[in-house]
Structures are given as structure tokens and as C-alpha cells.
Design a protein around this nucleic acid. Structure first.
Length: 845
DNA sequence: ACGCCGACCGTCCGA
DNA sequence: CGGTCGGCGT
């Protein structure tokens, strides 16, 4: 069996393309992974390219592993040193080698969202910026956006993003980057931005990788952001044997599946590939091997409503298949109940197994209803996403210990575990040490080691701190001992800290679960040690930081999979349920309201539509779409209109129905209770927004508002829009649910349900955040006056001053430190050197 | 220093 | 509804 046997013409062309840039526009299910793997095999086997000189970048670790396996299989396991990884792990690898030029050590930490928030809180506190006015999360969102655009703190102010922001954001950005560097840590966005910076400034590094990578292949190219684009562009210049520069860059993607603009992905990267590389070859793969004709027709019909896409239309030789089913349920509960019941029934009928099924939804919050039903019915399921293993409290604690042992500069992790279990080092103590470290411009850990020099600390605190640092030091010493195995560190940490005992004491019921998780972590460490080329603690920590939940789903076991539409990208299932097709949920209210100034409303909706397209095209044999009339959101009952996308499905391939749902009494009680949830018909504002654009949801589209049960649902119940389709619902009533929709419900336009405080950080007024200069130092724990100048201290050399502990003394000298003044005072107890802002010296006459 | 309680608040999507 | 966090009371 040859390498090319199962390739169609277009695939063959892509696989055997010679040198130079290549863009493969691969529609959903058109075999793009096959093209990449076969191309790698082709390059190695037929073109004599060394596997070592090939870099393949995928979106997830799971995809990377799959790709590695498939390439190995094609090559009879002859080669395994093709570099296949995600963008982020590739960056980590490059940074490990060359980051010293950026002022980082190779054992750097990688900060996730939670770490970032903690770090930002510290930063804002030091800058005396009010976190109420500038929530860390929002500040971080702006910074993330800048980083994705490769805008560093220096260029931020003059950038498009920075110009529209409060200058406090710029201050925070600068300080945050300094903080990260002091902590020897990168956040996710840094991994990309800093790698680009490294390649731009370090010519040795750039030359090394440009020379090494003769061929670069990028999967899911439509989801790359500017930083990733630039990274690829930098790397993809190779000098060939004739001394000519070549760009052997093969990117594969589908602009219709671009769904990550919220994290900076720029769809222009794929649309403008030919502008960047005018000599690029473009190949379209339009033959779909995955779905039935009807499913594909639905997908095509939906996506063609988007403007500005590369024209293409998928075709398939597969069977016609079943009709796409669209079902209305009275409530989210009924939706979950019925879908789970349906899966159980189909599997019992013997035509399928649980692993044939996936339930997809827009937001993770929707998973709960399904989970409950699965637990209740005893059907095996697996939830992808949400809180993953590494986000569990006990795992984060253990990892924080490991991180501190590995990298003492990591103050975020240090603060997490310094008093866990409780060892008498409370918040005040930590704040005091932190302030001292900040003023002295040293690492928090180093400040802890010098705790006895910190005047504000009591002796209890000092001895507690000493015990702590001694413990960390000894753990660190153990780790570097000869023949030490990594998993052992878990036991040693547990033993040294008494963590398990504390766990048992704190929450006896959960303790054993949590300990099992810790054991699981130990197993992962053992597994890592065996499989890694050069195992190290920092290597493990990096791997852990970069795993996604999706990486762990295996196709071997038999369970239904639950995940978001985003997570589903790149996967396929025989039977797919897409739930929650309601305006405000899918498309999300954020995309409808488009508060994002960088994104027009239509762009937001188009991305949602692409997401729907991704969902539809996951299905191989059958597709079931559903929505609920009422849905519990944030403890509040909401009534949403059916999604506008539903009207885009061609009626010829769909079959619509209204499910009765739960029992009469249930429904009555629901209806009865509906009245209590006043004013939450949150898409109300949509009506007026859209008035000019479409007539689809005008008044009356819900038909007989007050009709009794059994009354017609009215024509054009969803989308009587331009297509002229409609009147699907001629009978079957869930008629008077619209009681809740009567005018008394009110279209409350300032709908509290979706957050009235969603003001972008940038537009927040600058407020009362002090002067325009950063004060040299403000003691955060007390609102003490700022010691901004020597005269502001209120005393000078020679003055007699009073100290809270040492009493009266005479000032001998005052010198300016990094952030503050060091004051030397002669007390009766001796000469003390102290920092002005700590000592709170008061002049006495 | 620490625990408890009430206010708040948010939440999309994710490497 | 559920988690987080700051304030307050020991």
C-alpha cells in the first residue's frame, strides 16, 4: 500500500507540493490531517528531508500526538524526531534555550489565568490603583489583546489599543511585565510575544531555527493571531542548498472555522496569506468524507450567510442520510432529560454505542443540566472542559510547592502556599514582607530569608518564616540529590508540610478524594519522568501548564462526550446534539450587542455562525439541534427567542418538532413560577436594535400571544425572514407559554441580567487614582502618607524621632533607595537602619 | 491570626 | 444559583 493510494487529486497535489509557500484551504472533513501527515511522510521519504528539520504546529496536544502517531505509522516507525507541537510548547522549548538574553532563567514558570489575576492584584496594589475601578481581569484582557498584537509596554501608549485606554492601564502593563520578569515567569501570551521578541533581537537564535527548520507546517491556520503569524513568518525562511532563501511554509486551515477571534486570532492571516506570500500555491479541498449529504447541505446553507469568506462549497459522495432534527423543548431541564433519554434509547436499540454521541453547547454552564441527567440515568459520560484536574485546589497547592522549589522567584506560588497548611504566617505578615521586598527591590523569597531584618515583624512571625524557608530549602536540596526520582517530591512535600493531616482535619469527607488526586499527580509525574527525554521538574511544570482538557479524551472507552462547540473543533462523532440554539445564548448576547469596539456587530454574529458551522460539521451520520423556551441562567429564569440561525437551515433537510417535555403539573408549576421572574426577557433590546435590519422578529412573530393551549404557534415562529419560509408550527401547542411574554413582562432595556457594569476597562474614567506620577512608595497595608521627598518625611538629619519599638533616637543619615529612603537612626538600643515608610518615625521636639 | 458571614458579582469561548 | 472576597468579630 503506497503513500498516495487514498488521496484525491487535490490532496495529492498538496502532499507532493515542492518548495515554496502553500496554502491549503481545507473544508470541514476534507482530510486535512491526512494531507499534513502524508506530506510530512512524503518530505521525509521522497524528498530526503531530515525529520529533524521539520516543524509541524497543531492547535492542541491531542492533535499533536495524533499527528505524531500517524506519521510514525506511515513511516513504519522509522522516524520519530519530527518536531510536532503546539505553538505554546514550541515557544517554551525555544525560550528554554535562548531566554537568558531576555533576562530570564531557564526554569521559568508559566502563569495561567488565576496566577495572572493574583499577579495583577499585587501590581495594582503597589501602583495604588483602585481594583474597583480597574478590575484585574479587565486590565489583563486589555494587556492580553496588546500582547497578541505584539505591542509591548513601551509601545502601548501610542498604540491603537493604548490610546483609547486610561493611562493607568499602561502603568499597570509596564509594572506587570516587570513583576513577571522578577518572578521569572511568563504568562500564556508572553510565551508567544517574548519568543518573537527573542527571535527579533537575538540573531543567533533566529539563525539557528531558520537553519534548522527547512519545512514548517501549520494546522488550523485560521486561528492564528498576529503574534503566531509573526512567529511563523520569522521562522519560515530557510536558505536552500543553492544559497537561495525559501519559504517552505505549508499552512492548512478553513476560514469558515475561525472561531477564536476573542483571543486575538486574526482571520486575515489566512485570507491574506497570498498577499504575504505572492508566490503561494493555493489548493482547495472541497470533498467531504465525513458527513451525510443532508448534514453537509445544512452546513453549507448556514455558512453562506457570512460575507467576506473564501468562496467554497463542500460536496460529498456519502449517503443522503437522515433529516436534521430541530426540536423545541419547554425548558433546559426537558432538553437535557430528553436528549439523554434519546441517547439511552438509541444505544439500547443496539445500533450505536455511547462513544458515538457528543452533546455540544455554547457555554460550559450548560453542561450541568446534562450531567445531572447522566448521573440519574447511569449512562457513562465524560465532560470535557470546565474545571480541569489541574485547577483543583489540592493540585494547585501541590504544584505551587513544586513551583516554589523549582523557582524561588515565583512570588505568586509562594504566596499561595506560605500559609497552607496554616503555620502562623498570616496576611499581615506576608504583606509586610512583600512591602519590604518591593522597597528593597528583591525577591519575596529572599526577603523571607532575611526576615529578621524586617523591623515591622514580630518574633513569632520571624520564627514561623524561618521554619518555612528552611523547609523549602531542604526540599530543594533533596530534589537536587543524586538518584532522586521526581515523583518522590510529592511524598516529601506531604511529609514536610503535613498537608494530608491538615486536609483530613479541615474537611474529613473530601480528604480522601483530594488525596487520590494528589496520588494521581504523583502518577503523572512518574509517567512524565519515564517518557521525557530529559526529565526535570520545570519540564513537568511546563507540560502541566500547557495541557488542555481536550488532550485527555481517548477514543477507546465507551462514553458520551459533553463539551463546548469550541472544544469540538477538529473532532467528529457519528451522532451530534447541538443544544441551546437560542438568541442571546447562541448567538451569544455579547456578539449580538457587540460592546467590543474592535468588532462590529456583524463580525460578532459571523463568528457565532462559524461556530454553528463547526458544530454542524462534527456530525457524521445524524445531527440533532435543540432549543428551550425557558432556561435557568444565574438562578434566574430567562425566556429567549429561538436562535436566528435556525431559520438558515434549509427546510428540505430538516425536520422540526416540539417536544412535550415534562408532566402537566411540572409545566404548570413552571409556568406559574415564570411570573415571579419578572423582566428577564433579556433579548428585548434586540428587537429594537434589529428593527432596521431584518423583519424577522417583529411583533406578532410569536403568534397568538395570549392564545390558550393548543393555539397556533403562529406562522414564522422563528425566522419568517427574507427566505420566506415559515409556518412550521401548525399544531402542537406549547401555546400559552407566551404568557410570560406579554407586555407586562417588559422589555427592560437596561436588562440587569447581563451585567450593566460591563464597561470596558479602557473606558473607565481615570478617577481618583492619585496624581499622574507613580508615588515612589505607598505602604499598602496602611493608608499612611507617602514619603515622597526628604522634606515630606517630616524630619531630617540630626532630628530626634520616635519609633514605635525602639523609642526615641537621633537621625544620623537619610539616603535614597530604589523606592524609598533608608534612614539611619541612633537609638538607645543601638544604631538601626530602616526604611522610612516602614519605620513610621515621628519627629519629636 | 483566623474563621465566619454577608455582599457582591459574574460568566461566554480557551492555550 | 454558586463561588469569591472583604469586613468584622473573636
Amino acid at each position: 500500500m503506497g503513500l498516495y493510494d487514498f488521496l484525491n487529486d487535490e490532496q495529492y497535489q498538496a502532499v507532493t507540493h515542492g518548495s515554496g509557500p502553500l496554502l491549503v484551504l481545507a473544508g470541514a472533513g476534507s482530510g486535512k490531517t491526512r494531507v499534513i501527515t502524508h506530506r510530512i511522510a512524503h518530505l521525509i521519504r521522497e524528498c530526503g528531508v531530515s525529520p529533524y528539520r521539520i516543524l509541524a504546529i497543531t492547535f492542541t496536544n491531542k492533535a499533536a500526538n495524533e499527528m505524531k502517531e500517524r506519521v510514525a505509522r506511515l513511516l513504519d516507525n522509522e522516524y520519530n524526531d519530527v518536531w510536532v507541537s503546539t505553538f505554546h510548547s514550541a515557544c517554551v522549548r525555544m525560550l528554554r534555550r535562548f531566554c537568558s538574553g531576555l533576562g530570564y532563567d531557564t526554569n521559568f514558570a508559566i502563569y495561567d489565568t488565576d496566577d495572572q489575576k493574583r499577579a495583577m492584584k499585587d501590581v495594582l496594589r503597589h501602583l495604588n490603583i483602585d481594583v474597583k475601578q480597574f478590575p484585574p481581569k479587565q486590565v489583563l484582557a486589555v494587556i492580553s489583546k496588546a500582547k497578541n498584537e505584539l505591542i509591548g509596554p513601551e509601545d502601548f501608549r501610542s498604540s491603537d489599543i493604548g490610546r483609547t485606554c486610561d493611562r493607568n492601564i499602561a502603568r499597570a502593563y509596564t509594572e506587570y511585565q516587570e513583576f513577571l520578569q522578577k518572578n521569572n515567569a511568563f504568562d500564556f501570551d508572553d510565551l508567544l510575544m517574548k519568543t518573537v521578541e527573542m527571535l527579533q533581537t537575538n540573531h543567533e537564535a533566529l539563525a539557528y531555527y531558520q537553519d534548522r527548520f527547512e519545512h514548517i507546517l501549520v494546522d488550523e491556520y485560521q486561528d492564528t493571531n498576529t503574534a503566531q503569524f509573526e512567529l511563523v513568518r520569522l521562522l519560515a525562511t530557510h536558505i536552500n542548498r543553492d544559497g537561495e532563501p525559501e519559504h517552505n511554509l505549508c499552512v492548512v486551515g478553513d476560514d469558515d472555522q475561525s472561531i477564536y477571534s476573542f483571543r486575538g486570532a486574526n482571520i486575515r492571516n489566512i485570507l491574506d496569506f497570498e498577499k504575504t506570500y505572492p508566490d503561494a500555491t493555493v489548493i482547495k479541498l472541497e470533498q467531504n468524507y465525513r458527513s451525510t449529504k443532508r448534514i453537509l447541505e445544512a452546513a453549507n446553507a448556514v455558512i453562506k450567510n457570512n460575507m467576506g469568506r473564501k468562496e467554497k462549497s463542500l460536496r460529498t459522495d456519502n449517503d443522503e442520510g437522515e433529516l436534521v432534527r430541530v426540536t423545541e423543548y419547554p425548558s433546559d431541564l426537558d432538553e437535557a432529560k430528553e436528549i439523554v433519554r434519546e441517547i439511552g434509547k438509541q444505544v439500547r436499540d443496539g445500533h450505536s454505542t455511547y462513544s458515538d454521541y457528543a452533546i455540544l453547547y455554547r457555554t460550559n454552564a450548560q453542561s450541568r443540566a446534562f450531567e445531572e441527567q447522566f448521573v440519574y440515568s447511569g449512562i457513562p459520560y465524560r465532560l470535557v472542559g470546565g474545571t480541569n484536574f489541574y485547577e483543583r485546589m489540592e493540585i494547585r497547592d501541590m504544584l505551587a510547592y513544586l513551583r516554589v522549589i523549582e523557582n524561588g522567584n515565583d512570588a505568586v506560588s509562594l504566596k499561595r502556599i506560605i500559609n497552607v497548611p496554616k503555620r502562623g504566617i498570616g496576611d499581615t505578615t506576608v504583606d509586610r514582607v512583600d512591602d519590604y521586598a518591593y522597597v528593597k527591590d528583591i525577591a519575596l523569597y529572599d526577603a523571607l530569608c532575611n526576615a529578621s531584618d524586617i523591623p515591622s515583624l514580630g518574633s513569632r512571625a520571624i520564627s514561623g518564616i524561618r521554619k518555612f524557608t528552611e523547609m523549602i530549602d531542604s526540599l530543594r536540596a533533596m530534589l537536587s540529590g543524586d538518584g532522586y526520582h521526581l515523583p518522590q517530591i510529592i511524598d516529601d512535600v506531604l511529609a514536610a508540610t503535613g498537608y494530608e493531616e491538615d486536609l483530613t482535619a479541615q474537611e474529613p469527607e473530601k480528604a480522601s478524594d483530594r488525596m487520590n488526586n494528589i496520588t494521581e499527580l504523583k502518577n503523572k509525574l512518574a509517567q512524565y519522568e519515564q517518557q521525557a527525554d530529559q526529565p526535570s521538574l520545570s519540564g513537568f511544570l511546563a507540560e502541566v501548564a500547557l495541557v488542555a482538557d481536550i488532550d485527555s479524551i481517548d477514543s477507546g472507552s465507551d462514553y458520551v462526550v459533553l463539551m463546548t462547540l469550541h472544544s469540538a473543533k477538529g473532532l467528529e462523532f457519528n451522532h451530534v446534539f447541538i443544544s441551546g440554539l437560542e438568541d442571546g445564548l447562541f448567538p451569544s448576547c455579547r456578539s449580538i450587542e457587540s460592546d467590543d469596539p474592535g468588532l462590529s456587530e456583524e463580525e460578532g454574529i459571523e463568528e457565532e455562525r462559524r461556530l454553528f458551522y463547526v458544530g454542524i460539521t462534527r456530525a457524521m451520520q445524524s445531527l440533532m439541534i435543540s432549543y428551550a423556551v425557558q432556561r435557568m441562567t444565574r438562578g434566574e429564569m430567562q425566556f429567549n427567542r429561538p436562535s436566528r440561525f435556525l431559520s438558515e437551515l434549509p427546510r428540505e433537510v430538516t425536520k422540526k418538532s416540539i417536544a412535550g417535555g415534562s408532566s402537566w403539573s411540572d409545566r404548570n408549576s413552571m409556568r406559574g413560577s415564570a411570573g415571579r421572574y419578572g423582566g428577564s426577557y433579556n433579548s428585548g433590546s434586540y428587537g429594537s436594535n434589529s428593527a432596521g435590519r431584518s423583519n424577522s422578529y417583529g411583533s406578532g412573530s410569536y403568534g397568538n400571544r395570549s392564545a390558550g393551549r393548543g393555539g397556533s404557534y403562529g406562522s414564522g415562529s422563528y425566522g419568517d425572514s427574507s427566505s420566506g419560509r415559515g409556518d412550521y408550527y401548525t399544531s402542537g401547542g406549547y401555546g400559552n407559554r407566551s404568557a410570560g411574554r406579554s407586555d407586562s413582562f417588559g422589555y427592560d432595556s437596561d436588562s440587569s441580567s447581563y451585567g450593566s457594569s460591563r464597561k470596558p476597562a479602557g473606558s473607565a474614567s481615570s478617577g481618583n487614582v492619585g496624581g499622574s506620577y507613580r508615588s515612589p512608595y505607598t505602604k499598602p497595608t496602611t493608608p499612611a502618607p507617602v514619603a515622597a521627598s526628604a522634606s515630606a518625611l517630616g524630619y531630617g538629619v540630626g532630628d530626634r524621632v520616635k519609633h514605635i519599638k525602639f523609642g526615641i533616637g537621633t537621625v544620623r543619615s537619610i539616603t535614597a533607595g530604589t523606592h524609598d529612603y533608608e534612614v539611619t537612626v541612633e537609638f538607645a538600643a543601638g544604631v538601626k537602619q530602616m526604611l522610612a515608610s516602614f519605620a513610621k518615625l515621628v519627629k519629636v521636639d
